[in-house]
């Protein structure tokens, strides 16, 4: 479904990707893990064509994304749903109108049918009863479920989740986890889940990539990664405070600095 080859990209003078390669198979749940700021969100924006890479190739469904024109991009995006880290619901519209938004824009369905579709989607995320609420009246977990219903509105083939577990209470987290699983198992949607929550993602991912320093430093099933002999991956999977990624930001020796003021 997604093939990324030798991706290179810099923004504001900083190198984000430096020869990144990955493959995402149709119908799977693929996790992309990595420390904050490595460019996971940026990677998703490349897949949707919102950003163009410096060089390298990004193919989605056989289409070379950076080469697509506007119409081609918009056509591609109709088959992609994306769940944003902060939900990104339209603050002026009700829950119902948020989910109806892509339907009203892209289909000519009569309002009666739109209502049916919207209520079905909201029911799937357990929020049919919240249809009349405004986004400001929702909790973080509810907002993310509404955003998921909206992302699913046009029955996409590919769903991108950006940090779907961040900042959720255990119950909401469980719900999201289940929804990702159901979407994949029942509807056959290809899922890409960006997260650094190793424990949660391991429960649903078929395959994982660990990204750091602009390239893939490890890949495999969650089981394989747990037994990886790379110290960096070990540190990441176990969440150790110190290791190849040091606890201390580079600094002059502690002793010297403390005594430095006096001498």
């Amino acid at each position: 479904m997604i093939e990324i080859d030798d991706l290179r990209f810099s923004i504001a003078g900083r190198r984000i990707f430096d020869g990144l390669n990955l493959r995402i198979a149709s119908g799977t749940v693929t996790a992309i893990m990595g420390p904050s700021g490595t460019g996971k969100t940026t990677l998703l924006r490349m897949i949707t064509g919102q950003l163009r890479p410096g060089s390298g190739s990004v193919r989605v469904d056989g289409r070379e994304v950076p080469a697509l024109d506007r119409a081609g991009l918009y056509d591609l995006r109709r088959h992609i749903g994306m769940l944003f880290q902060n939900s990104a619901l339209l603050t002026d519209d009700t829950v119902f109108d948020n989910v109806a938004f892509p339907l009203r824009e892209h289909t000519r369905l009569p309002e009666r049918l739109i209502r049916t579709v919207v209520l079905t989607k909201l029911h799937a995320v357990g929020l049919r009863g919240a249809a009349r609420l405004m986004p400001s009246e929702l909790s973080g977990g509810m907002a993310r479920r509404v955003a998921l219903a909206r992302a699913m509105a046009l029955d996409p083939d590919l769903l991108l989740y950006d940090e779907p577990f961040a900042g959720l209470d255990p119950i909401s987290l469980g719900m999201i986890l289940r929804l990702i699983k159901v979407n994949n198992d029942v509807l056959g949607v290809t899922s890409v889940v960006v997260s650094h929550d190793v424990e949660q993602i391991s429960r649903i991912a078929d395959y994982c990539y660990v990204v750091s320093g602009g390239r893939v430093i490890g890949e495999g099933t969650p089981e394989q990664l747990r037994h990886s002999d790379s110290a960096l991956i070990q540190q990441f999977m176990s969440g150790a405070a110190d290791g190849p990624v040091p606890f201390h930001y580079p600094a002059s020796p502690y002793r010297d600095e403390l005594l430095g003021g006096r001498s």
Binding site: Q50, L73, D75, M82, Q85, L89, T91, F101, E105
Partner: peptide, 11 residues
């Protein structure tokens, strides 16, 4: 709050 980005992704 990514509302504009979300629209772009929704084509």
């Amino acid at each position: 709050t990514d509302q504009l980005s979300a629209m772009e992704v929704m084509a």
